Amino acid sequence: MRVLACMILTIAAVFTVASARAQTYDPNYPVCLQTYATGGGYIDCSFTSLAQCAATASGRSAQCLNNPYFALGGRKPRQHGVY
């Protein structure tokens, strides 16, 4: 009985202590820079405009993209046609 209890606790601990991944996209910024490299690239979502991102990406193996998780900067979306 003691062995069974130890096995259950061990299995529960293994499943509970899963590795956590960092969030790739920062929902506070609308534009991200994706870089490419031989050893792996990265995504940096710290740009407020495509022009700002393009200036950083210039001359590098990178591209700018819209952040799919941008949360409108805390603003509520406008509703059209609702009066």
Rank of each mutant, 00 (worst) to 15 (best):
I8E: 09
G41D: 11
S46P: 00
S58Y: 07
Y69V: 09
S58L: 05
Q79P: 03
I11T: 13
R21E: 09
G81V: 15
V14S: 05
D26G: 03
A22V: 09
M1G: 14
L4N: 13
Q52K: 01
Q52G: 06
G59D: 14
C64F: 02
F15E: 03
C64K: 06
A13G: 02
V82D: 12
S58C: 04
R21K: 15
A62M: 09
T35M: 13
Q34Y: 03
S19W: 13
A5T: 10
P30L: 07
Q63L: 15
Q23E: 14
N66E: 12
V82E: 10
R75N: 06
P27E: 10
T10I: 11
C64E: 07
A62E: 10
I11S: 04
A20W: 04
F15C: 10
A55K: 05
N28P: 00
T48I: 03
T56N: 08
L50R: 07
L33P: 07
C53E: 02
F70I: 04
C64G: 05
A20R: 11
A22M: 08
R78P: 02
V82C: 07
A62F: 11
Y42K: 15
N28V: 00
L33R: 07
A62H: 07
N67Q: 14
M7C: 12
S19V: 14
I43Q: 00
L33F: 04
